[in-house]
Design a protein around this nucleic acid. Structure first.
Length: 539
RNA sequence: GGCCUGUUCGUCUAGGGGUUAGGACGCAAGGUUUUCAUCCUUGUAACAGGGGUUCGAUUCCCCUACAGGCUACCA
């Protein structure tokens, strides 16, 4: 009992005697070792469709949560009433679900920290903003947007940039300068106001990022960010984000690098609230860059460069349509796999990962610091790998749907046979149709180079003999057809290439493609003979 | 402009004070196959530049360049 008391006093002394900045930092460090339940959140704002960078952030959060037996929370940050886009929230849910992400707590799933939509939490933020005003960490400001705009313009005219911080705040209409009565009067009569964070002057803030290590920023370069606004009585991102992370007991914040500049503000907010012992650890992910040229991947790039930037097709309220990975024919597993390897690596040479393997092997230590350029070619390669590894039956089921869209009815057996022949020749299921319409349609044209190469003078006569050969085959199966063809070629002392390529040309309209006997068996004896006759008469 | 972050083959990346700087995609060549694809083999190609520190730097430090992000009563 006594020992404990001494320890507490010692800690208290330590806490108070060292400079202000240090103990808090020490405290934050303590946090690293603290053993608390892993709770991460993906917190998009519904201002449009999620793009692949956002999906990757969600994925990394998900891997991390699952690996640590923690929770994955989806929080909708819709505090910007101006930029709300209908349908965006549904899109986010559908996209995450397509990827195979299972949300533990969210708008749909509920949870013990509900609601998970910030617009529904609006009543809780103001008290926190006010708490900061009371403790001297924030203040009311009554400047109008017009005034601020003018100030900004004036500053720019003299070549300086306008920073709303310690250098200027005392000249402004704020609760720092105005009397309490005046402030109350203005609020009561309905003047527009805002609560700003009182950014300290000339303080070095040391932050620890799980990916980047220590980052130090001097607070004098930062500004007095708006925390809460009276226009819509809503918090801005910073306040809402910090209070919700705190309230929802978030342990780790894994988000895009674009948030790194606001990390000092966030850390300072935790300090101002006295929440440093509950502050999450931060990890800022490298950005996804466009395949060519400069800049981060943006919504426009996809359509310009011929690959999707969105997981799912998106139709904007204006009717503009953007492609999606799902609609382009990507398997969700392939999509997840390729995104996982953008900015992260397993430290081994493995490239193909199931969701479970990603959950097992993911590690923030192996996340890169530098931005990753998206490579559409490699994306296709991933899908090809998954396509080849899938069973014929599974692919056939999807292929059947493609056929149905083309108005073609066939059975699963035939679809499976075709898939077996085509799987390793295509990247996407829909390409099986594109590259193998000949299974359902007689060729109408014959590839010129193939004709030049294989349709020699004596070939029509040989093809005629094949007609007779086919007619003599009673059990028209691939292995038997193959056997008889080979026997015929050997007997006549032709070369395999000469006959087989010409036959393929008759059957497919091209000499490139699957084995001729296999094709014959699938299209059937009558059709095979018909195609030989057509070729002989029309080439 | 200011602040922050980054920089290994064209791209994704491994590595890390002494290595033939490894893998994958792409591309090229060869092999297998009746063709194409698959598969196998091989090749192509990189430590941004300059200063330090060191016996030695691609690896550590500094500077420069370049790239990216942020700089709203957006997230």
């Amino acid at each position: 009992m006594k020992n404990k008391k001494i320890l507490v006093t010692a800690f208290f002394n330590f806490y108070c005697l060292v400079p202000l900045d240090f103990p808090i930092f020490a405290h934050e460090k303590l946090n690293v070792m603290e053993n608390r339940r892993v709770r991460v959140r993906f917190a998009p704002s519904p201002t449009g469709p999620l793009h692949i960078g956002g999906v990757r952030t969600a994925l990394f959060n998900y891997f991390f949560a699952r690996q640590h037996g923690g929770d994955f929370i989806l929080r909708i940050e819709d505090t910007d009433s101006q930029r709300f886009v209908p349908g965006a929230e549904e899109y986010i849910n559908e996209a995450l679900s397509w990827c195979g992400i299972k949300i533990d707590e969210g708008v749909i799933e509920g949870g013990r920290f509900a609601p998970y939509r910030q617009s529904e939490r609006r009543t809780i933020y103001r008290q926190y903003a006010e708490q900061l005003v009371k403790t001297g960490h924030a203040y009311y400001a009554f400047d109008t947007p017009e005034e601020l705009g003018e100030r900004r313009k004036a500053a720019e005219a003299t070549g300086k940039s306008f920073i709303y911080n310690y250098t200027i705040r005392n000249e402004m209409q704020t609760s720092l300068a105005l009397s309490d009565e005046e402030v109350e009067k203005r609020i009561a009569r309905g003047d527009q106001w805002v609560i700003r964070f009182k950014m300290p002057e000339n303080e070095e803030v040391t932050m620890h990022d799980l990916i980047r290590g220590e980052v130090v920023v001097n607070t004098s370069t930062l500004d007095d960010k708006v925390l809460f606004k009276s226009v819509d009585m809503l918090p801005t991102y910073h306040l809402a984000n910090i209070t919700d992370d705190y309230l929802m007991e978030i342990s780790h914040v894994i988000r895009g690098e674009e948030w790194l500049p606001s990390l000092p503000l966030h850390v300072l907010l935790y300090r101002a609230f006295g929440w440093t012992d509950k502050m999450p650890q931060f990890a800022h992910l490298p950005l996804l860059l466009k395949p060519t040229g400069n800049g981060k991947l943006s919504k426009r790039d996809g359509d310009k460069m011929g690959f999707p930037v969105f997981p799912l097709r998106w139709t904007s309220p204006e009717g503009e349509v953007s492609r999606g990975y799902r609609e382009d024919g990507y398997f969700p597993e392939a999509f997840v796999n390729l995104l996982a390897l953008l900015g992260w690596n397993p430290g081994t040479e493995q490239e193909l990962f199931s969701m479970d393997e990603l959950i097992q092997q993911f590690s923030l230590e192996h996340v890169n610091k530098s931005g990753a350029r998206f490579d559409p070619d490699k994306a296709k390669w991933f899908n090809h790998q998954y396509l080849m590894r899938k069973s014929d039956g599974e692919v056939a089921a999807q292929y059947l749907q493609v056929l149905e869209e083309k108005g073609i009815k066939t059975n699963i057996e035939k679809a499976e046979q075709i898939v077996a022949l085509m799987k390793n020749r295509v990247n996407f299921v829909h390409e099986i149709w594109d590259k193998a319409t000949f299974f359902f349609e007689r060729p109408s044209v014959y590839d010129e180079t193939s004709v030049r190469k294989f349709w020699k003078e004596d070939v029509p006569a040989i093809m005629n003999e094949l007609i007779a050969l086919f007619e003599s085959i009673s059990t028209f199966e691939a292995s038997i057809i193959e056997e008889r063809l080979v026997a015929f070629i050997k007997e006549k002392e032709f070369s395999m290439g000469k006959v087989m390529n010409a036959l393929r040309l008759c059957l497919l309209g091209n000499s490139n493609g699957p084995n001729a006997a296999d094709v014959c068996a699938i299209i059937g004896k009558d059709e095979a003979i018909a195609r030989l006759k057509q070729a002989i008469s029309s080439i």
